[in-house]
């Protein structure tokens, strides 16, 4: 089956555009970090773009997305304005949290993007609760919960899978297995080795492992998982095998992995290049159109940086705002 038979051209172009937007956005974040416009911890999503883009493309507008601290990709794939995200990274008043959240804590409730949570596995119980609310209200919403392989050793992972399965809650657990929990190779952290999806079977949750570098494979798995979960059958578990091309954070010297390993992933498993080449080979979209998308995406990111730079700092008066809801 060719790509054209499964998806229309507009969607293919959009999947490409979103992945490229994330790539260009993240690479620019790296530059802005070196310029000290972005401070604190910065965890880039470079190399993993197909997971967020493919998976989130399977959702409805009223569904929920929740993720960890490596959250820029999910935020952009969910439709958050690049201007507002970049402004938040710059700590500006125009940022999604008025400069109070930063890179690890992006939120856009209007788009069902429920954060950006920076304690490993902390978002999993929250996903369970969002799903519980949907179930109690008899809404047919789905919660897509992203987390990394590092979260799997946490108790909250196990507690959350148990809750979701026990109560048949509409959660898609979407594991981004990028092979390292910070600098610890997954084999060195998990009994049972690198393939984690089998853990879900212990909680009677149907699970599968997919190639997270292939946006269409991710999308297909997500569509199926979302459909099943929305029908009320309980949670689903998808393990997307992926790789981060950059360090855990920009402060990471990457002493724990070989340069050759990173180069091999970059040259052979780049989700954006591979997708583009496959589409070109099938003559669905022409080179010039890709170039047009690339140009447009770069302009969007340029504009985001300009917006962030020109935006005001938050006023000191805002320091005490929203500690408590009124």
């Amino acid at each position: 089956m060719t790509i054209a038979e499964t998806l229309d051209k507009t969607l293919i172009a959009d999947l490409y555009r979103q992945m490229q937007l994330i790539r260009v956005f993240e690479e620019r974040c790296n530059v802005e970090y070196q310029r000290q416009n972005i401070k604190g911890f910065l965890h880039l999503y470079v190399g993993e773009e197909a997971v967020a883009v493919g998976a989130i493309s399977a959702l409805r507008e009223d569904d929920y997305v929740i993720t960890s601290y490596r959250d820029h990709g999910h935020a952009l794939a969910r439709g958050m304005e690049p201007n507002v995200v970049m402004a938040e990274l710059f700590g500006k008043a125009t940022g999604s949290s008025g400069g109070k959240g930063g890179s690890m804590h992006l939120f856009d409730v209007s788009r069902g993007f429920m954060g950006g949570h920076a304690i490993v596995a902390g978002q999993l119980p929250l996903a369970v609760g969002l799903a519980l609310a949907a179930k109690i209200r008899k809404e047919d919403k789905v919660v897509m919960c992203f987390f990394g392989d590092g979260a799997v050793a946490e108790g909250e992972f196990h507690e959350s899978l148990n809750f979701a399965s026990l109560w048949k809650l509409p959660v898609v657990f979407l594991l981004e297995n990028n092979l390292y929990g910070m600098g610890t190779q997954v084999e060195r952290a998990r009994a049972g080795g690198r393939d984690i999806f089998t853990a879900a079977e212990a909680y009677s949750i149907p699970a599968l492992q997919i190639n997270g570098q292939d946006v269409l494979e991710v999308r297909e798995a997500a569509v199926e998982a979302v459909q099943k979960v929305r029908s009320g059958e309980g949670p689903a578990f998808v393990e997307a095998m992926t790789y981060r091309f950059r360090g855990h954070s920009v402060a990471d010297p990457q002493a724990y992995r070989e340069r050759d390993e990173v180069d091999e992933w970059r040259s052979q498993n780049d989700p954006i290049n591979n997708f583009r080449n496959a589409i070109l080979a099938q003559e669905i979209i022409e080179e010039t159109e890709f170039e047009g998308i690339d140009k447009q995406v770069t302009e969007v990111v340029d504009e985001a940086v300009r917006f962030a730079e020109e935006s005001p700092e938050p006023s000191i008066d805002s320091l005490f705002d929203n500690i408590y809801a009124e």
């Binding site: 929920y64 429920m114 902390g122 999993l124 119980p125 929250l126 996903a127 369970v128 609760g129 969002l130 799903a131 519980l132 609310a133 949907a134 109690i136 209200r137 108790g155 909250e156 507690e159 959350s160 148990n162 809750f163 026990l166």
Partner: peptide, 28 residues
């Protein structure tokens, strides 16, 4: 049992799930 929910013994899961439900507008 929808409104009086016996939970597994998992305090982090319970408080986290209640927090998630509250985020969605419930009052657990």
């Amino acid at each position: 049992d929808e409104r009086v929910r016996d939970c597994p013994i998992a305090e982090s899961g319970i408080i986290g799930a209640a927090t998630g439900a509250a985020m969605a507008g419930m009052r657990p």
